[in-house]
Design a protein around this nucleic acid. Structure first.
Lengths: 186, 186
DNA sequence: TGGTAAACGGAACATGGTTCCGTATGTTGG
DNA sequence: CCAACATACGGAACCATGTTCCGTTTACCA
């Protein structure tokens, strides 16, 4: 029915080239790397970027999809492996923080409010809120965490704490996130 | 010696006009309000803005100076009025949060890393870190707060938590900041 | 009241995102 | 193998915004 007629070879090639170029640019310039830079690295015109990835968010999602999936999938495993649900939650938050602080500008983008990043925001939420909710619910049921703080709010707070990470060694987002999770335990 | 020859009347008038225009623009468009908008509101050219306030940070500092001073001065008073040092700290952080969340885009600017906002960042730090340090030290001495978290780091974390406040009623920065302070108590 | 330095306005420039269309090229039916 | 067509490409052009610069205006003072 929906027989997608397979993309042209050069298109597929360019898409991969662009993903690589973008990943490289993100490492050096953050996820705000100028479109022209990414196009130049990939050896294509800017039009090609917009054709493959209509918004910057689509490009970012494509670049980090694997890692987000890995983080999401680690949730249930941690719940099994950890001594307590609260510990599982703490360890998972740590994973999330580790992912974020290695992506220059990503936490900022997630929180920019800019319509450009709507897709990005939505993807993270769709994928990670349910996982966090599971861990949070388990910890709450076990009486290890106060009720009334939703997974969304917790993830957002942690995301915020990661903004600007790495630019200043007097600030340790991992520590601050851990403090927040500790505060949940009361 | 340094007989500053008093500014021209029109210059003084414009400076005040600009402060008012900027304050109004900041309310509706956040501290990122386009320079041209502010100039238009004030009925002056953009050159005039840059002459009075060489960087955007200078303008923001000028607009909010009174409120920052008020927050800084409230610190010692809270220490006297509160039942415990930890409570004083919690209440002061609350004040700080209240200030930040009513200024669209200010927390973002403070953390943007953009060199433009260096002055702004420095001003907040100069004025508020010592106050926070006093409160934190009192609470630590009283054994109500774990050692090892500096005033700078705490302020920065709280500032981060305030980013994007008001754009989403599922997120309550005041609550998250309180949780962080609770986490400090262990 | 004239001269001068301060202050002004806004055009011009720089940067970065986004759109659009003429051109080039893979693909496929003959 | 070739032609014709749809797909994809490149990059010039456009828009928004910050920033600079300089010719013109204006407040001040002698």
């Amino acid at each position: 029915m929906t027989a997608v007629p397979r993309k042209r070879a050069d298109a597929r090639r360019n898409e991969q080239t662009l993903l690589d170029a973008a990943a490289a640019a993100f490492v050096t310039s953050g996820v705000d790397a100028p479109v022209r830079d990414i196009a130049f690295r990939a050896g294509v015109g800017v039009g090609t970027i917009y054709r493959h990835f209509p918004t910057r968010a689509d490009l970012i999602v494509a670049v980090y999809r694997h890692q987000v999936e890995a983080c999401a999938e680690a949730g249930p495993a941690l719940l099994t492996d950890s001594a307590t649900p609260h510990e599982a939650l703490a360890r998972w938050i740590d994973l999330f923080v580790d992912f974020l602080i290695t992506k220059h500008g990503l936490p900022e983008a997630l929180r920019s409010g800019d319509a450009t990043f709507e897709t990005l925001h939505a993807y993270f939420l769709d994928r990670l809120v349910p996982v966090c909710d599971t861990l949070l619910a388990a910890a709450t049921t076990a009486g290890q965490v106060i009720p009334g703080v939703g997974a969304y709010q917790l993830l957002r707070a942690v995301g915020n704490l990661c903004i600007g990470a790495g630019s200043d060694d007097r600030y340790d987002p991992r520590r601050m996130a851990a403090l927040l999770v500790a505060g949940l335990a009361q």
